[in-house]
Amino acid sequence: MAETERSPGLLEVIEQFSEEASPIDFILILEHWPLFLEGIWHTVVLVVLALIIGGILSIPLAVIRANRTPVLNQIVFGYVYVFRGTPLLVQLYLIYHGLGQFDFIRESFLWPVLRDAWWCTIIAFVLNTAAYTTEIFRGAIEAVPYGEVEAAKSCGMSPLTTNRRVVLPNALRRALPAYSNEVIFMLHGSVVASTVTIVDILGAGRILNSKYYLAYEGFIAAAILYMILVYFITRGFRVWEKHWHAHLRPREA
Protein backbone atom coordinates (compact mmCIF):
# COMPACT_ATOMS: atom_id res chain seq x y z
CA MET A 1 0.00 0.00 0.00
CA ALA A 2 2.82 2.32 0.89
CA GLU A 3 4.30 1.58 -2.48
CA THR A 4 1.28 2.79 -4.42
CA GLU A 5 1.34 6.02 -2.51
CA ARG A 6 4.97 6.67 -3.22
CA SER A 7 5.15 6.11 -6.94
CA PRO A 8 2.64 7.87 -9.16
CA GLY A 9 1.40 5.70 -12.02
CA LEU A 10 2.88 6.10 -15.47
CA LEU A 11 -0.35 7.65 -16.69
CA GLU A 12 -0.26 10.29 -13.97
CA VAL A 13 3.32 11.16 -14.81
CA ILE A 14 2.39 11.65 -18.45
CA GLU A 15 -0.68 13.61 -17.43
CA GLN A 16 1.35 15.93 -15.27
CA PHE A 17 3.99 16.35 -17.95
CA SER A 18 1.32 17.06 -20.57
CA GLU A 19 -0.33 19.73 -18.50
CA GLU A 20 2.65 21.48 -17.07
CA ALA A 21 5.77 21.02 -19.11
CA SER A 22 4.87 20.04 -22.64
CA PRO A 23 3.15 22.05 -25.36
CA ILE A 24 1.72 18.77 -26.60
CA ASP A 25 -1.32 17.12 -25.13
CA PHE A 26 -0.27 13.47 -24.80
CA ILE A 27 -3.38 12.54 -22.87
CA LEU A 28 -5.56 13.54 -25.79
CA ILE A 29 -3.54 11.24 -28.04
CA LEU A 30 -3.75 8.36 -25.56
CA GLU A 31 -7.47 8.87 -25.15
CA HIS A 32 -7.90 8.34 -28.87
CA TRP A 33 -6.05 5.04 -29.06
CA PRO A 34 -8.96 3.23 -30.81
CA LEU A 35 -8.74 5.79 -33.63
CA PHE A 36 -5.01 5.23 -34.02
CA LEU A 37 -5.46 1.46 -33.75
CA GLU A 38 -7.87 1.66 -36.68
CA GLY A 39 -5.25 3.72 -38.50
CA ILE A 40 -2.51 1.18 -37.86
CA TRP A 41 -4.77 -1.64 -39.00
CA HIS A 42 -5.62 0.07 -42.29
CA THR A 43 -2.02 1.09 -42.99
CA VAL A 44 -0.65 -2.38 -42.24
CA VAL A 45 -3.30 -4.24 -44.25
CA LEU A 46 -2.92 -1.92 -47.25
CA VAL A 47 0.86 -2.06 -47.27
CA VAL A 48 1.17 -5.80 -46.62
CA LEU A 49 -1.42 -6.72 -49.26
CA ALA A 50 0.12 -4.35 -51.80
CA LEU A 51 3.60 -5.76 -51.15
CA ILE A 52 2.47 -9.38 -51.42
CA ILE A 53 0.46 -8.94 -54.61
CA GLY A 54 2.96 -6.50 -56.12
CA GLY A 55 5.87 -8.77 -55.20
CA ILE A 56 4.28 -11.82 -56.83
CA LEU A 57 3.45 -9.82 -59.96
CA SER A 58 6.93 -8.42 -60.22
CA ILE A 59 8.76 -11.78 -60.41
CA PRO A 60 7.57 -12.77 -63.90
CA LEU A 61 7.88 -9.15 -65.02
CA ALA A 62 11.49 -9.06 -63.80
CA VAL A 63 12.28 -12.32 -65.64
CA ILE A 64 10.82 -10.85 -68.83
CA ARG A 65 12.93 -7.71 -68.40
CA ALA A 66 16.12 -9.62 -67.55
CA ASN A 67 15.74 -12.05 -70.46
CA ARG A 68 14.80 -9.24 -72.87
CA THR A 69 11.85 -11.35 -74.06
CA PRO A 70 10.79 -9.72 -77.35
CA VAL A 71 7.61 -7.58 -77.35
CA LEU A 72 6.79 -8.38 -73.70
CA ASN A 73 9.99 -6.65 -72.61
CA GLN A 74 8.91 -3.41 -74.29
CA ILE A 75 5.46 -3.58 -72.74
CA VAL A 76 6.86 -4.20 -69.25
CA PHE A 77 9.41 -1.44 -69.75
CA GLY A 78 6.59 0.96 -70.66
CA TYR A 79 4.58 0.00 -67.60
CA VAL A 80 7.56 0.33 -65.27
CA TYR A 81 8.50 3.66 -66.79
CA VAL A 82 5.01 5.12 -66.36
CA PHE A 83 4.64 4.01 -62.74
CA ARG A 84 8.15 4.97 -61.69
CA GLY A 85 7.88 8.19 -63.65
CA THR A 86 4.81 9.55 -61.89
CA PRO A 87 4.14 10.23 -58.20
CA LEU A 88 2.06 7.73 -56.28
CA LEU A 89 -0.36 10.50 -55.27
CA VAL A 90 -1.06 11.33 -58.92
CA GLN A 91 -1.61 7.64 -59.71
CA LEU A 92 -4.09 7.35 -56.85
CA TYR A 93 -5.94 10.53 -57.88
CA LEU A 94 -6.19 9.31 -61.47
CA ILE A 95 -7.66 5.99 -60.34
CA TYR A 96 -9.92 7.44 -57.63
CA HIS A 97 -11.13 10.77 -59.03
CA GLY A 98 -10.21 10.25 -62.68
CA LEU A 99 -11.92 6.93 -63.44
CA GLY A 100 -15.00 7.96 -61.43
CA GLN A 101 -15.66 10.78 -63.91
CA PHE A 102 -16.62 8.49 -66.75
CA ASP A 103 -20.20 7.28 -66.98
CA PHE A 104 -19.23 4.10 -68.83
CA ILE A 105 -16.98 3.13 -65.93
CA ARG A 106 -19.63 4.03 -63.39
CA GLU A 107 -22.06 1.76 -65.21
CA SER A 108 -19.59 -1.07 -65.81
CA PHE A 109 -18.95 -4.18 -63.75
CA LEU A 110 -15.77 -2.49 -62.46
CA TRP A 111 -17.61 0.17 -60.52
CA PRO A 112 -18.40 -1.87 -57.37
CA VAL A 113 -14.62 -2.19 -57.01
CA LEU A 114 -13.58 1.28 -58.16
CA ARG A 115 -16.35 2.91 -56.12
CA ASP A 116 -14.56 1.87 -52.98
CA ALA A 117 -11.67 4.08 -51.87
CA TRP A 118 -10.02 1.03 -50.36
CA TRP A 119 -9.84 -0.89 -53.64
CA CYS A 120 -8.67 2.15 -55.57
CA THR A 121 -5.84 2.52 -53.09
CA ILE A 122 -4.87 -1.15 -53.25
CA ILE A 123 -4.80 -1.03 -57.04
CA ALA A 124 -2.61 2.08 -57.07
CA PHE A 125 -0.26 0.65 -54.43
CA VAL A 126 0.08 -2.74 -56.16
CA LEU A 127 0.83 -1.20 -59.56
CA ASN A 128 3.31 1.20 -57.98
CA THR A 129 5.23 -1.26 -55.86
CA ALA A 130 5.24 -3.90 -58.62
CA ALA A 131 6.96 -1.42 -60.95
CA TYR A 132 9.72 -0.62 -58.46
CA THR A 133 10.14 -4.23 -57.39
CA THR A 134 10.40 -5.36 -61.01
CA GLU A 135 13.45 -3.17 -61.44
CA ILE A 136 14.99 -4.33 -58.15
CA PHE A 137 14.52 -8.00 -59.08
CA ARG A 138 15.68 -7.42 -62.66
CA GLY A 139 18.96 -6.02 -61.36
CA ALA A 140 19.35 -8.96 -59.00
CA ILE A 141 18.63 -11.52 -61.76
CA GLU A 142 21.20 -9.90 -64.02
CA ALA A 143 23.73 -10.06 -61.16
CA VAL A 144 23.50 -13.85 -60.92
CA PRO A 145 26.89 -15.15 -62.14
CA TYR A 146 26.59 -16.57 -65.62
CA GLY A 147 28.60 -19.61 -64.59
CA GLU A 148 25.73 -20.79 -62.43
CA VAL A 149 23.33 -20.55 -65.35
CA GLU A 150 25.78 -22.42 -67.57
CA ALA A 151 26.21 -25.11 -64.95
CA ALA A 152 22.44 -25.55 -64.76
CA LYS A 153 22.25 -25.73 -68.53
CA SER A 154 24.98 -28.35 -68.73
CA CYS A 155 23.05 -30.44 -66.20
CA GLY A 156 20.26 -30.46 -68.75
CA MET A 157 17.81 -28.13 -66.96
CA SER A 158 15.20 -26.39 -69.08
CA PRO A 159 15.12 -22.57 -68.93
CA LEU A 160 12.10 -22.73 -66.63
CA THR A 161 13.78 -25.16 -64.24
CA THR A 162 16.96 -23.08 -64.34
CA ASN A 163 14.99 -20.01 -63.30
CA ARG A 164 13.12 -21.85 -60.60
CA ARG A 165 16.03 -23.77 -59.10
CA VAL A 166 19.04 -21.55 -59.71
CA VAL A 167 18.44 -18.01 -60.87
CA LEU A 168 15.45 -16.87 -58.82
CA PRO A 169 16.44 -18.26 -55.41
CA ASN A 170 19.81 -16.66 -55.86
CA ALA A 171 18.52 -13.36 -57.19
CA LEU A 172 15.73 -12.84 -54.66
CA ARG A 173 18.21 -13.43 -51.86
CA ARG A 174 20.57 -10.80 -53.26
CA ALA A 175 17.70 -8.37 -53.71
CA LEU A 176 16.79 -8.39 -50.02
CA PRO A 177 18.65 -5.24 -48.88
CA ALA A 178 17.36 -3.19 -51.83
CA TYR A 179 13.90 -4.62 -51.35
CA SER A 180 13.82 -3.60 -47.68
CA ASN A 181 14.09 0.00 -48.88
CA GLU A 182 11.13 -0.50 -51.18
CA VAL A 183 9.11 -1.85 -48.25
CA ILE A 184 9.89 1.23 -46.15
CA PHE A 185 9.16 3.57 -49.07
CA MET A 186 5.85 1.80 -49.59
CA LEU A 187 4.97 2.28 -45.94
CA HIS A 188 5.75 5.98 -46.12
CA GLY A 189 4.08 6.29 -49.49
CA SER A 190 0.93 4.76 -48.04
CA VAL A 191 0.09 8.08 -46.35
CA VAL A 192 -1.51 9.16 -49.62
CA ALA A 193 -4.40 6.83 -48.70
CA SER A 194 -5.51 9.46 -46.20
CA THR A 195 -6.25 11.87 -49.06
CA VAL A 196 -9.02 9.62 -50.37
CA THR A 197 -10.92 9.26 -47.10
CA ILE A 198 -9.14 6.16 -45.78
CA VAL A 199 -8.42 6.35 -42.08
CA ASP A 200 -4.79 5.21 -42.11
CA ILE A 201 -2.27 6.32 -39.50
CA LEU A 202 -1.96 9.80 -40.96
CA GLY A 203 -5.72 9.94 -41.50
CA ALA A 204 -6.25 9.20 -37.80
CA GLY A 205 -3.81 11.99 -36.94
CA ARG A 206 -5.64 14.39 -39.22
CA ILE A 207 -9.00 13.55 -37.65
CA LEU A 208 -7.56 14.16 -34.19
CA ASN A 209 -6.03 17.47 -35.30
CA SER A 210 -9.16 18.77 -36.93
CA LYS A 211 -11.46 17.67 -34.15
CA TYR A 212 -9.58 19.66 -31.52
CA TYR A 213 -8.05 22.30 -33.82
CA LEU A 214 -4.51 21.18 -33.07
CA ALA A 215 -1.40 21.64 -35.15
CA TYR A 216 0.99 18.92 -34.01
CA GLU A 217 -0.52 16.25 -31.79
CA GLY A 218 -1.99 14.07 -34.52
CA PHE A 219 1.11 14.34 -36.70
CA ILE A 220 3.49 13.56 -33.84
CA ALA A 221 1.46 10.50 -32.88
CA ALA A 222 1.50 9.42 -36.53
CA ALA A 223 5.26 10.00 -36.82
CA ILE A 224 5.93 7.86 -33.75
CA LEU A 225 3.72 5.06 -35.05
CA TYR A 226 5.45 5.04 -38.44
CA MET A 227 8.82 4.91 -36.70
CA ILE A 228 7.71 1.91 -34.68
CA LEU A 229 6.53 0.13 -37.83
CA VAL A 230 9.83 0.88 -39.57
CA TYR A 231 11.67 -0.55 -36.59
CA PHE A 232 9.82 -3.84 -37.00
CA ILE A 233 10.45 -3.85 -40.75
CA THR A 234 14.19 -3.31 -40.38
CA ARG A 235 14.37 -5.93 -37.61
CA GLY A 236 12.46 -8.38 -39.76
CA PHE A 237 14.77 -7.88 -42.69
CA ARG A 238 17.83 -8.26 -40.48
CA VAL A 239 16.60 -11.67 -39.34
CA TRP A 240 15.68 -12.57 -42.88
CA GLU A 241 19.03 -11.52 -44.28
CA LYS A 242 20.82 -13.41 -41.54
CA HIS A 243 18.99 -16.54 -42.61
CA TRP A 244 19.20 -16.17 -46.38
CA HIS A 245 22.66 -14.67 -46.54
CA ALA A 246 24.17 -17.24 -44.18
CA HIS A 247 26.39 -18.55 -46.97
CA LEU A 248 27.89 -15.09 -47.50
CA ARG A 249 29.03 -14.62 -43.91
CA PRO A 250 32.64 -15.34 -43.04
CA ARG A 251 32.98 -18.82 -41.65
CA GLU A 252 33.46 -19.06 -37.91
CA ALA A 253 36.56 -20.86 -36.80
Partner: peptide, 18 residues
Protein backbone atom coordinates in the same frame (compact mmCIF):
# COMPACT_ATOMS: atom_id res chain seq x y z
CA UNK B 1 -18.78 8.76 -41.68
CA UNK B 2 -16.26 9.44 -44.41
CA UNK B 3 -14.06 12.43 -43.76
CA UNK B 4 -12.88 14.87 -46.39
CA UNK B 5 -10.54 17.84 -46.40
CA UNK B 6 -12.78 20.04 -48.55
CA UNK B 7 -16.46 20.34 -49.33
CA UNK B 8 -15.65 20.17 -53.07
CA UNK B 9 -14.26 16.63 -52.71
CA UNK B 10 -17.45 15.57 -50.91
CA UNK B 11 -19.61 16.74 -53.81
CA UNK B 12 -17.35 14.91 -56.27
CA UNK B 13 -17.75 11.66 -54.36
CA UNK B 14 -21.48 12.18 -53.87
CA UNK B 15 -21.93 12.70 -57.62
CA UNK B 16 -19.75 9.63 -58.29
CA UNK B 17 -22.00 7.60 -55.98
CA UNK B 18 -19.31 6.77 -53.45
Amino acid sequence: LQFYATQEEIFLDLAAGR
